Computed example of a mutant assay.
Amino acid sequence: MYKIRLATLDDLSRIAKVHIDSWRTTYKGIVSQEFIDSLTSEWSEERQKSVITNQNKFIYVAEDISGKIVGFASGGPERMNDQLYKGEIYAIYLLEEYQGKGIGRDLFIAVIKKLKRNGINSVIVLVLEDNISAINFYESLGGLKVKEGSLELQGIQYKDIGYGWMDTSFLTV
């Protein structure tokens, strides 16, 4: 059992733990080990705080029955001035042992519903090309490959793919 709720500033350290732990398992062999090893709680907390304290952005967390945060998802307005997609899912991260249990889908739906309440019905998410489990996840939710780009981490370029939904109303039923 778990529950999904909006994050608060009190959750920052626990969100950072999920963020870093999930990077270490998800991106091993995908991004440089040097980058993964350089991740710190302070880095993650700063990133998440900038989302929580922005009135147009938000984070949802998934808590297990003991209150442990096991995953989170963040979203808000699309950040690259895309003309088609007005909303963006910035991140979805789950601890490895909680993946495949429907929690990621529930976090995704929570973000979509919040965006809809904010008047946003079209959404994009960027995923690294080699993150096959994320690609499969977004495709299973009806995401269509709509663009390609790149992400630079410590001077190394990684190819990313944008998955989009022009109308998310079917996802919230």
Rank of each mutant, 00 (worst) to 15 (best):
Q48Y: 14
V123Q: 04
T40I: 05
G71S: 04
R117V: 05
K116C: 12
E78D: 06
T53E: 14
E96Q: 09
L6F: 03
E88C: 08
P77T: 02
K145E: 09
Q157A: 11
Q154V: 09
Q154E: 14
E88S: 07
Y90A: 09
A73E: 08
G149S: 15
Y163S: 11
R117F: 05
A110P: 00
W43Y: 12
D21Y: 09
G76R: 04
S169W: 03
R14S: 13
G102H: 01
D106K: 13
I65C: 08
F170Y: 10
Y158K: 07
D64M: 10
S22N: 07
K49E: 13
I89D: 02
L39H: 02
W23P: 14
I4C: 00
S38Q: 13
I65P: 05
Q154F: 12
L171R: 04
G143D: 04
Q83R: 10
K113Y: 02
D37F: 03
G164K: 02
S41H: 15
E129Q: 11
I15K: 09
I89T: 07
N56I: 01
D37S: 13
E139Y: 01
H19Q: 13
A73Y: 08
K68P: 00
N54M: 02
A91F: 02
K147S: 14
G29N: 07
L95E: 07
E45S: 12
A62M: 01
N54D: 15
F72A: 11
R5H: 04
R24S: 13
D106N: 15
L9N: 15
L153W: 10
K49I: 00
G164F: 05
Y2R: 05
G71A: 04
T40F: 04
G29H: 07
A134H: 08
Q55V: 10
T53A: 08
L144V: 14
F58T: 10
A110N: 08
V70F: 05
E78W: 01
S44L: 07
T40A: 06
K68T: 12
V123P: 02
A73R: 04
G75S: 01
Y138S: 06
K17H: 14
S150Y: 08
Q157L: 13
A91E: 09
S32N: 12
S41F: 12
A134V: 08
N56Y: 12
R79V: 01
N131G: 06
G155D: 06
N118K: 11
E34I: 10
S122Y: 09
R14W: 02
N54K: 08
E34P: 00
V127K: 05
L141F: 07
H19S: 11
G162L: 07
T26C: 02
Y93R: 06
E96I: 02
I156D: 03
Q33S: 12
Y138V: 10
W165F: 10
I156M: 10
I161A: 03
